[in-house]
């Protein structure tokens, strides 16, 4: 079965990589989880090129869910998805309105169970409602 991929977009390369490391455990290595953090030189910021590449890398034919940490990470993803024609044949991809860590956990667990892109997005967005205490 083709599983939905997950792309984690952060201003920080380390934050994205760290979260990817954490949630890959949950996906049993089956769910493609790709980190797109920082600028091309590793400094803080969001890189359109890195995100685009991550989306292509994460796609196994079932689409890709993106999660972002803060404002400009989300704006950069929205610009990429709005463009459509910019990169030829960008895989089907959607951006979740979800908390970064909890949303990524919920997305990867749902993807590993074979959920489709809409189910994975819904799971990530429902993570907003989780109470921690």
């Amino acid at each position: 079965m083709k599983l939905v991929g997950v792309v984690l977009v952060s201003h920080s390369e380390q934050l994205a990589e760290g979260l990817a490391e954490l949630v890959r455990e949950l996906g049993g290595d089956q769910v493609p989880v790709i980190a797109a953090g920082g600028m091309d030189d590793g400094s803080l910021g969001t890189s359109y090129g890195r995100i685009e590449q991550a989306v292509r890398q994460a796609d196994r034919g079932a689409g890709v869910l993106l999660l972002g940490d803060l404002g400009s990470a989300l704006l950069t993803v929205k610009t990429l998805l709005d463009e459509g024609v910019e990169g030829p044949d960008l895989p089907k991809a959607v951006l979740a309105d979800a908390p970064f860590v909890e949303g990524a956990v919920a997305a990867v667990v749902t993807a590993s169970a074979g959920g489709d892109l809409e189910a994975v997005r819904a799971a990530a967005e429902e993570a907003r409602l989780f109470r921690k205490l």
Partner: peptide, 14 residues
């Protein structure tokens, strides 16, 4: 959009 790296990239780019 591809070089700025902050929110102003997508905003001015768009």
């Amino acid at each position: 959009i591809s070089t700025v790296g902050g929110a102003s990239g997508p905003l001015y780019g768009s």
